[in-house]
Amino acid sequence: MTSSPVTPLILKGALVSIGLSRVPTLVLFQYNPESITRNLMPRRAMSKGWDAESGNPAESLGFAGPPYETISFTLVLDATDGLEVKNKVAVTTGILPGLSALEMLISPSKAGSLATEGLKKAGVISAVPDSPPLTLLFLGPARVLPVRIDSLAVTEEAFDPNLNPFRASVAVSLTVLGPDDVEDSGLPYLWAVNYSTVVKEALALVATGQAAGRIDSTIQEAISRF
């Protein structure tokens, strides 16, 4: 599984959680996913009118914001390379460090929990559940998305004599967040929303230009036959 010296450099995907009350957590993908599933559903604006036939609110043709989007993929973690070269971390803990980093993306930090508990006891803030941390998903330079992790399904497949897993697959399910979801979450998340939107609009213009060029050439070819 060792890379050849002539293997081209491949940009790795990543998940990173940034917050004032927690230590930043970075999960760099050991292997990029073989496939990524994206489900998008338009976010329709509510209409003030009524459908005369059904008596229900009339459907608006406008959009209330970016589409609802969910992303799912499977990450593979494997300590084989580390075991072959007798890497101390791989030998003693297998892939537990990588799994722990993933799990911390959906877990409150100990320092943040202690600080929050202290503020609650002091009456500074009310005793409400902490909001789940937000995360940035990096899928290449064109896609930097603020997301919330909905679930991590871990399948551990092989173990060392101390029951440390050294191979596992993790099914990751995410919800992409929009401007309203991240407006109070800090600059990195607001930047990611704006950046990804601008890049997507620019790429759509590129596709439109290419399509227009093909249409023009098709029309010219059809005219030339007469």
Rank of each mutant, 00 (worst) to 15 (best):
Y68E: 12
A202L: 12
A64C: 05
T116E: 12
S21E: 14
T80Y: 10
G98A: 10
Y195E: 07
L136D: 04
S217G: 00
G82D: 05
S185P: 03
A171W: 01
V172W: 00
W50Q: 10
G140I: 13
A90R: 01
G186W: 01
S126R: 14
L203T: 08
R44F: 14
M1F: 09
K200N: 12
R43T: 10
E156G: 02
D130W: 04
A52K: 07
F159A: 10
T37R: 11
S17Q: 07
S113L: 15
V206F: 05
N194V: 04
S109C: 08
A45P: 02
K121P: 02
G178Q: 09
I219A: 12
V27M: 02
V27D: 00
K12W: 02
A52W: 04
E117N: 13
T92G: 00
G65D: 08
E84N: 10
L15E: 00
P42S: 08
M1G: 13
S113Q: 15
K121F: 11
P161K: 12
G123T: 05
S35I: 05
G186A: 07
G213P: 07
T175S: 15
E157R: 13
I36M: 11
S224W: 03
L163S: 10
V147K: 02
A211L: 11
L137V: 01
K86Y: 14
E183T: 07
A111Q: 15
G19M: 06
N164T: 04
P42E: 06
L26S: 08
D184A: 10
V76M: 04
L205T: 09
